[in-house]
Amino acid sequence: MKKNWWKILSFLLLAYTIIAGFLLDVPHLPILNETIRNLYFHVCMWFGMMILFSISFVYSINYLRGFNYRNDIFATNFAAVGSLFGILGYLTGVLWVNVTWITDQNQSLGSVLKEPKLIGAAIALLIYGAYFVLRGSFNDIDKRARISAVYNIFAFAMLFPSIWIIPRIVGSLHPGSPGSDSGNPALDKKDLDDAMRIVFYPAVIGWTLLGVWIATIKIRIDIIKNKNIINE
């Protein structure tokens, strides 16, 4: 039980996120209205995804350093849960777009589809999708692990440019683009209300820990399955 404290912490943080996230007062802004609370859910999916992909990236490097098959299992499963979070982020974003940009901000569907952050996130998710296609196309375990580890490093190198840097350069409907008055939302002192900060950061940690928990379960199953080829 001592090793499981972070699983309980994850539950407590998420319970806090739901209770405080729905009940505490939030800034009253036009167009956003109460949907500003999506920050605790939609945005946390993306933050969790980035953290999980980063963990996967580290394990891929570790795999290439010693060719320990264990690291390959870790890298794949963290990437898998990261992709799940990304897909959930996308789906929740679709709901949010409907009631803010499209209906209340009178954006045309065309301008929403041209939104660089949506395209960037789609590219990033597709790159990670190709990672799993690549893995599935090898029969040789060693070759699969090596090539997919190298690919994972390239995929990670594309992740931040496509979801952060390019949208910031070309302008985006998301906060933080040139033209809007926000600099670095979520992190900058002046762009996120302090009342939201006390829920947002615990929420990010809670969702990420849940992702890590699911990933570790998948990893343990894979380790049991491949017991004969893992040399410890």
């Binding site: 539950f11 998420l14 319970a15 739901i18 209770i19 729905f22 009940l23």
Partner: peptide, 13 residues
Amino acid sequence: KIYTVVAVCLTIL
């Protein structure tokens, strides 16, 4: 009825 939403979400969680 926001507390109902909170209760529903907590139940799911």
